[in-house]
C-alpha cells in the first residue's frame, strides 16, 4: 500500500508523516500542491504546518490548490484521507468535514503533549484501537478550537463522527483537559462515510518512545490494517 503526503508551501510536518509511513514499512510519496497527481496513493495525508502562511484563515487558501481538487474527488469516491492539524483545517475549509476550527479560546499557540480518548474504532484510522483507549499525542496549534452549530454538533455526535476527545490522563473528559476550548472536547472527527478524518493532535510526532510517546503509531497502523484487510477481501 502507498501513502501520499501533500506538501503545501508552509507545510512543516510532511517529513514527519513521511517518516511515520516508512516506520510501519509502507511506500510513501510526496504530493506537490501544484500537481493534481495523487500517484495512486491508497491514503492521502494532509500534514501540519502553516499552508500559505495561514493567510486569511488557516487552511482557506490551500483548499483551492490543484492537489486539493484531486483530493476532493478522491474523497468523493471513498478514498482515505487524513488531515492532521493544518490538514484538519484544510479539510473543514474544503467542506470535506463539518464545522470550523477557530482561534484557541485563550488566544495562545499551544504546543504540548495532551491525552485524547478514542471514541470509536469502526473507522479506518482507529481500527487498531479500542474505544476508550487513551493516547498521549502532542498538539501544536493556535487555531484548533472546534466549532459547529449546536444542531450540527448533535448530528455528528448521533452519527458517531466524533473519533477523538481531549481527556485527562485517566480518560475523563474534563474542562481542564481541553487545551483550546473545542466544543464537546473534540480533538478529531470523521465525515459521515468514515473515509475522511481530521485531528488536531499530531500522531506523526509520537511514533517512537524516544520522542516521548509512540501512541501516534496506532493511527498509522490502523489504516495499514484496514487496507490490508480490504485487499484480502478483494483477493478472496
Amino acid at each position: 500500500m502507498k501513502f501520499g503526503v501533500v506538501t503545501f508551501p508552509g507545510s512543516n510536518c510532511d517529513y514527519d508523516a513521511y517518516a511515520a509511513a516508512k516506520l510501519i514499512g509502507q511506500d510513501v510519496e510526496f504530493l506537490w500542491h501544484q500537481s493534481d497527481d495523487l500517484k495512486d496513493s491508497d491514503v492521502v495525508i494532509l500534514p501540519g504546518g502553516f499552508s500559505y502562511g495561514d493567510y486569511l484563515r488557516s487552511g482557506a487558501i490551500a483548499r483551492f490548490s490543484p492537489i486539493m481538487k484531486s483530493v476532493i474527488e478522491f474523497a468523493a469516491t471513498g478514498g482515505l484521507v487524513i488531515g492532521i492539524c493544518n490538514g484538519f483545517q484544510v479539510l473543514v475549509e474544503s467542506g470535506l468535514l463539518p464545522g470550523a476550527l477557530m482561534r484557541n479560546e485563550h488566544l495562545r499557540f499551544s504546543c504540548k503533549y495532551v491525552y485524547i480518548r478514542v471514541e470509536r474504532n469502526e473507522n479506518a484510522f482507529t481500527m487498531a484501537c479500542q474505544p476508550g483507549d487513551i493516547l498521549k499525542i502532542p498538539i501544536a496549534h493556535k487555531d484548533g478550537n472546534y466549532y459547529n452549530f449546536q444542531a450540527d454538533l448533535e448530528e455528528i455526535k448521533s452519527k458517531n463522527q466524533v473519533l477523538f476527545r481531549y481527556c485527562d490522563r485517566d480518560g475523563s473528559i474534563t474542562q481542564e483537559s481541553n487545551p483550546n476550548g473545542s466544543m464537546y472536547n473534540i480533538a478529531g472527527i470523521t465525515n459521515e462515510r468514515g473515509n475522511v478524518v481530521g485531528m488536531m493532535p499530531h500522531p506523526e510526532r509520537a511514533v517512537e518512545d524516544i520522542l516521548g510517546s509512540s501512541d501516534g503509531l496506532k493511527v498509522f497502523q490502523s489504516v495499514k490494517k484496514y487496507i490490508m484487510e480490504r485487499a484480502g477481501v478483494e483477493k478472496a
Binding site: L56, R57, A60, F64, G99, A100, Y147, N148, F149
Partner: peptide, 8 residues
C-alpha cells in the same frame, strides 16, 4: 467561497 467562512 473564500473571503468568509459561512460556518462562522
Amino acid at each position: 467561497k473564500l473571503l468568509a467562512n459561512p460556518v462562522i
